[in-house]
Design a protein around this nucleic acid. Structure first.
Length: 278
DNA sequence: ACTAGCACCTGATCGC
DNA sequence: TGCGATCAGGTGCTAG
């Protein structure tokens, strides 16, 4: 579910409410809430004080007053909520971290999200070391990303979603970036120039920046900020979830096609597949 | 070494 | 009303 703008919105919310607080108690209510890669039980972080909260792509981590970090991935339906201790448990509450009068709750309907204890290697949790820099990272270098992107022999949308090429982009912002770039999701990368790939990555960065400014995209309450607020970028989407509607650019009819157990939304009129090879 | 495909879950919605 | 099929913001394993 949550892509970079949503995860960054959550990171900012957590920063406001959790930095400087101690995990006074930790209760794990579902076994799948802990990643198999965790180097220690989540409960072992009891007593740790949160110093900072960092992110790369869709991975979040809490830096603590000890060498270990608490890593979190929201998967498709994970969320963090700051709640008063007395508040009734949510149906899919998986982990409860006591902060004093409030609790930090990790809630996750589909259980694809997880928490883990990990160590930092060069400032990044070892479980996230394979994740590429995202376009918001100060160390992100466009030229390197373009080279990596063009080395892939696949469809353009596959590479855009490949978190080892560029991180942070998910299904919504992939479709929106491709629309902005007038690229068919199934276009072959081999046919794209350096400058076209750079344009695509720039558009991905831009659409995610705009979404972040709106607090992300919320279709329902599966994605909300730590205080329960929705994001408002849904109204600005051009193609995602708009099958059958008119393309805001050319008026063509937006189509939805199958894409590896999921969907791609695009305008066949202004996102042509590209010239077929001779 | 690379890529495609599917498994991992729960719940909402749609068509019959 | 019920029931199966399909779909949903992601990642990672494995077969080829």
């Amino acid at each position: 579910m949550p892509e970079l703008p949503e995860v960054e919105t959550v990171r900012r919310g957590l920063s406001q409410h959790v930095i400087g607080k101690k995990f006074k108690s930790i209760d794990v209510l579902h076994p799948r809430a802990t990643s198999l890669k965790s180097i220690a039980p989540i409960q072992s972080l009891r007593g740790a004080k949160v110093k900072n909260i960092a992110r790369r792509g869709k991975f979040l981590w809490f830096e603590l007053d000890r060498p270990e970090v608490l890593v979190a991935h929201l998967g498709m339906s994970g969320q963090f909520l700051i709640q008063p201790k007395a508040k009734t448990d949510e149906k899919h509450l998986r982990v409860r971290l006591g902060l004093g009068s409030d609790e930090l709750r990790f809630i996750d309907q589909r259980t694809f999200g997880w928490l883990s204890v990990d160590q930092l290697i060069d400032g990044v949790p070892s479980c996230a070391r394979h994740i590429a820099l995202d376009p918001f990272d100060p160390k992100f270098v466009m030229k390197n990303a373009v080279v990596k992107f063009r080395s892939k022999k696949t469809q353009v949308k596959k590479a855009l979603l490949d978190q080892e090429v560029i991180s942070g982009v998910g299904n919504i912002y992939a479709d929106e970036s491709l629309w902005r770039s007038k690229l068919h999701p199934e276009a072959r990368i081999e046919k794209l120039s350096d400058s076209k790939v750079e344009e695509l990555i720039t558009n991905a960065h831009e659409v995610m920046s705009e979404a972040l400014a709106q607090g992300g995209t919320s279709f329902d309450d599966l994605y909300i900020n730590v205080n329960g607020q929705s994001g408002y970028f849904e109204r600005s989407l051009a193609v995602y979830g708009r099958e059958g509607e008119s393309c805001p650019r050319c008026g063509g009819q937006i189509r939805r096609i199958a894409f590896s157990n999921r969907s791609s939304h695009f305008c066949p009129k202004c996102q042509p597949r590209g010239k077929s090879r001779a």
